[in-house]
Design a protein around this nucleic acid. Structure first.
Lengths: 223, 223
DNA sequence: AGGTTCACTTAACAATTTGATAATACAATT
DNA sequence: AATTGTATTATCAAATTGTTAAGTGAACCT
């Protein structure tokens, strides 16, 4: 059963949405401000978050930006809700990583269609996809753990994501540009040595040598 | 590079969309009616189709329904475009399997945000390891490996690219100028003996003699 | 607030790999 | 034998990556 978090400061909107979503079989929680939305998102782990743009304490876009930084919310669906229907807000919303945008007044049937359309795109088989086992190496993306040769090793976020990426397609050579855009995103600019340093830390922490360097090309994982 | 098909009967809309999409690096084709949209979809295999709802011969929703029945369009992204902004059309559109809905007038920046947001959700179908197998020689461009007579041999970047190039079209004679422009690019100028030296290294490392020299012309791979 | 810790980034330099060239040797053709 | 084109080898410069240490800023904890 899919979980939906709705954040809006207007009580009646919360009720309408909750009613409609529950009627379609979704599990719903609500929040009435930005701070509480973040807290509930963390505790509730929803599959979809519907965010009003204008809310007390933290507006929807800020909430979205904050959440998208956390790896566990990278894949969560986010829909914005707003009365404002000017371009720049919409663009800002979508660029902060939202999946859709809906302007008030809310038309429940339209909303439901959108919600269903979004869920159609997201494969629900998360359990298998989140665990990668390669010989001595076991990566659990949900639990955020790495076990190498029976030993559990704690990796920092970037290290973890980097190793995950390489492990997601072992033997494939990932170009440095590929790694950058996958892990750092296209708009962040980091120095040349950043990737190397993370690679080094992984090699060091896991005491492994199966991350191969292909000079002038990139890195690959090979057990 | 992602491919986008736009179908609309208004020429100016086609142009605006095409311009904006191409500016972001998409490959664009257009159609100006429903029938032609279906034909182009089949021949062009786009990753995204933008459909005007109101078009001659077959409207957008009919096109969408038709395409969604074909297995090869199950995963294709579809966005509707329309002047009508009544609920029932929107709902019908989304329920016929579209991924999003955009009402005219088109605001290019909003459209681009939506397009980008959708593509973010659909992981680009990682190509299967592209391999070239020629008798005893196996070149894996994804893993960046060469296996010759069962033995894995490490080649430097230029060597690898050079061998790949020759293997990409065995028996074809590659002119020296061709090799230069393919591997070194047009703006880099290198001396006359550079290619020879790399060819020699490959022959040496692989201990092979199937790179034939055609004096005064170029090289070819022949097993 | 103030201080501490930690992840992340950058800088600086060392180590390594690589690619290009020159010099020379060889082979084929005229 | 002279000419033209290619192979071989050694050498050096350039490009690339590895490593260490230090700086930065956010989160956390009094």
């Amino acid at each position: 059963m899919k979980k939906v978090l709705i954040a809006d400061d207007e009580q009646d909107i919360l009720e309408i949405l909750q009613f409609n979503l529950e009627a379609e079989g979704y599990l719903v929680e609500t929040a009435d401000n930005g701070i509480s939305a973040i807290e509930k998102a963390i505790s509730f782990c929803p599959d979809l978050i519907i965010l009003d743009v204008m809310m007390p304490y933290k507006n929807g876009i800020e909430v979205c930006n904050h959440l998208r930084k956390q790896p566990e919310f990278k894949k969560t669906l986010i829909i914005f809700l707003t009365a404002k229907s000017d371009d720049s807000t919409e663009v800002k919303g979508l660029e902060s990583g939202a999946d859709d945008y809906l302007s008030k007044p809310i038309r429940p049937r339209v909303l439901m269609s959108k919600v269903n359309a979004l869920f159609r795109r997201v494969p629900s088989n998360e359990k298998e996809a989140d665990k990668i086992i390669l010989g001595d190496l076991e990566i659990n993306r949900t639990a955020y753990t790495v076990i190498y040769k029976g030993e559990e090793i704690t990796l920092a976020r970037k290290e973890f994501e980097l190793l995950s990426l390489l492990a997601s397609n072992p033997k494939k050579v990932f170009l440095r540009t590929e790694i950058l855009s996958q892990i750092w995103g296209t708009d962040v600019i980091v120095g040349d040595r950043t990737i190397d340093v993370h690679i080094r830390k992984i090699r060091q922490k896991l005491n492994m040598d199966c991350i191969k360097t292909i000079k002038g090309v990139g890195y690959k994982l090979e057990l």
